[in-house]
Amino acid sequence: MFSIGDFARLGRVSVRMLRHYDSIGLLRPAAVDPHSGYRYYTAEQLRRLNRVIALKELGLTLAQVQAILDDAVDVAELRGMLRLRRSQLEAQLAADTARLAGIEARLRMIETEGRMTTQDVVLKPIAPVRLAELSATAPSYQTEDIGPVIQPLYPELFRRLEAAGIRPSGPGIAWYAPAGEPGGEAVVVHAGVTVDVDPDPAAGVAVVDLPAVPAAATVIHHGPMDEAEQSMQVLARWIEENGYRADGFAREVYLDYCPDAPEKGVTELQLPVRHG
């Protein structure tokens, strides 16, 4: 048998924790010296300790842990519970990572305010264009909602075009439209690329004609699209200074599409405008 100190080291827990588990009846020592009161444990008891720690990591209270263990949860059930918790933690980590990236992007935008001026904005008409595209709905137009929706669309779009033998004739263009009820935040994300073909249902992609835009405030954005807010705010200042009003969502024309190195990307933002 092992002393409480040795058992704590073997189980990678504290002596204080083992004493607490003993006091509440969750993990009793195998033997207690009647004269010294020293607690002793067996190697077999590491199995129960492992289950206690694992169930605690699932977010259960010690009372719930004890009830589960006393009902003899088998290895398969415990494994399933742990896998579910792992999936939950992975999803939470992904969400926190995305949130951190958004904070860092916003901080960089604040730190670089003023470096890009409205002199970089060009007002011009936009010609009609034919696109092959795939679409999906995002819960909002926020960067953190758009990114996860649009990112898988382009690889799948290019895969389908290659399978259908369709070659792009120009740059990729993403455009957006409201989804659902008027006034709602959801948007339909259209991931397209310029083509010169007729619609063909067998190709597995939609072929649409985007209409001409009489006037659009445009600016060239350098870098990843999750940092495009600064360029959009430059457009906002230009629109206000020149007496225009925004007229819908901006189109994103990927002049240099770099999926493996988004920091090298070059994108023209085209925001339709009209006189206020």
Rank of each mutant, 00 (worst) to 15 (best):
M1D: 07
F2K: 05
S3R: 03
D6E: 15
A8R: 00
A8W: 01
G11V: 00
R12Q: 14
R16W: 04
R16T: 02
R16Y: 06
D22R: 01
D22M: 01
D22A: 00
I24V: 07
L27R: 01
L27T: 00
R28E: 13
A30W: 00
A31C: 05
D33A: 01
S36F: 06
G37T: 01
Y38L: 01
R39C: 05
R39N: 10
Y40Q: 00
E44V: 02
E44R: 06
L46K: 01
L46F: 05
R47S: 14
R47P: 10
R48A: 04
R51K: 09
V52Q: 10
A54S: 08
A54H: 03
L55D: 09
G59C: 01
L60Y: 12
L62W: 03
L62K: 01
L62Q: 03
A63K: 13
V65L: 05
A67K: 12
I68D: 14
D70M: 09
D71I: 06
A72M: 12
A72L: 14
V73Y: 09
V73M: 11
D74H: 04
V75E: 15
L78R: 02
R79G: 15
M81K: 13
R83L: 15
R83C: 12
R85F: 07
R85A: 09
R85H: 10
L93Q: 11
A94Q: 11
A94W: 07
D96W: 09
T97R: 12
A98L: 08
L100A: 14
L100N: 12
A101E: 15
A105K: 03
L107F: 10
L107H: 12
L107P: 10
R108F: 08
M109R: 15
I110Q: 13
E113R: 12
V122P: 11
K124T: 14
P128E: 14
V129D: 12
R130T: 15
L131D: 09
A136N: 09
T137C: 10
A138L: 03
P139S: 09
Y141M: 15
Y141T: 07
T143F: 08
T143Y: 08
E144S: 14
D145M: 02
I146S: 05
I146D: 10
P148N: 01
E156P: 09
E156A: 08
F158G: 08
R159H: 10
L161F: 07
A163H: 12
A163Y: 10
G165R: 03
R167C: 13
P168W: 04
P171Q: 08
G172P: 06
G172A: 08
A174P: 11
A174I: 05
W175I: 02
A179T: 02
P182Q: 04
G183H: 04
A186E: 09
V187K: 04
V189Q: 14
V189S: 12
H190E: 13
D196W: 09
V197C: 10
P199E: 09
P201G: 02
P201Q: 02
A202L: 11
A202Q: 14
A206P: 11
P211H: 03
P214W: 02
P214Y: 02
A215L: 15
M225Y: 15
E229A: 13
Q230G: 11
M232I: 04
V234N: 05
R237L: 11
W238N: 03
I239N: 05
E241P: 05
G243E: 01
F249Y: 04
E252K: 00
V253E: 14
V253C: 11
V253R: 13
Y257Q: 10
C258L: 11
D260M: 04
A261N: 15
P262T: 00
G265L: 06
G265H: 08
V266F: 06
P272M: 07
